[in-house]
């Protein structure tokens, strides 16, 4: 099994990513797809943040002027996660507003019906 049993946190994060991906693919409702996207984002943050952890070390805030690198956790993945969270919030906001406009035009949130109505409306022109 290799390192799979020891890397349980990263494995759970990637399983969360796959669950979000499957939610994105299999549901036809627009809002369910958006929930799937958010689940994928949560999985990515957990994976990134758990990459930086080292046993027995503290959080990267300097205490008592001690700047030796063997006392602190890796701080670089934490700064990457900050960027990711902001991007996730922005994407969710734009996706939700697009869903509101789609609902106002087609009066349904089912992606198949929206696609059918858009296709036929284009052909009838």
């Amino acid at each position: 099994m290799g390192n799979l049993l020891y890397n349980y946190e990263e494995a759970v994060a990637l399983i969360l990513f796959s669950i979000g991906f499957m939610t994105l693919l299999f549901h036809k409702n627009l809002l369910r797809k958006l929930i799937g996207m958010n689940i994928m984002d949560s999985g990515v943050y957990l994976f990134l943040a758990s990459m930086g952890y080292i046993y027995g070390r503290r959080a990267p805030i300097v205490e008592n002027g001690d700047v030796s690198a063997v006392h602190y956790v890796n701080p670089v993945p934490a700064s990457l996660v900050l960027t990711g969270i902001v991007v996730s919030v922005s994407v969710t906001a734009v996706m939700l507003s697009l869903a509101v406009r789609l609902y106002e035009r087609y009066h349904t949130l089912n992606l198949d019906e929206i696609y059918a109505a858009a296709r036929t409306r284009r052909e009838h022109r």
């Binding site: 099994m1 290799g2 390192n3 799979l4 020891y6 890397n7 349980y8 946190e9 990263e10 494995a11 990637l14 399983i15 990513f17 796959s18 991906f21 499957m22 693919l25 758990s50 952890y53 080292i54 046993y55």
Partner: peptide, 22 residues
């Protein structure tokens, strides 16, 4: 697609160094 993605990711985790190791 989902099964291939999940399998690839789990295989990648198996090949990674141990969690929390220095």
């Amino acid at each position: 697609c989902s099964i291939v993605l999940t399998a690839t990711l789990i295989l990648t985790v198996e090949g990674m160094p141990r969690y929390g190791e220095d």
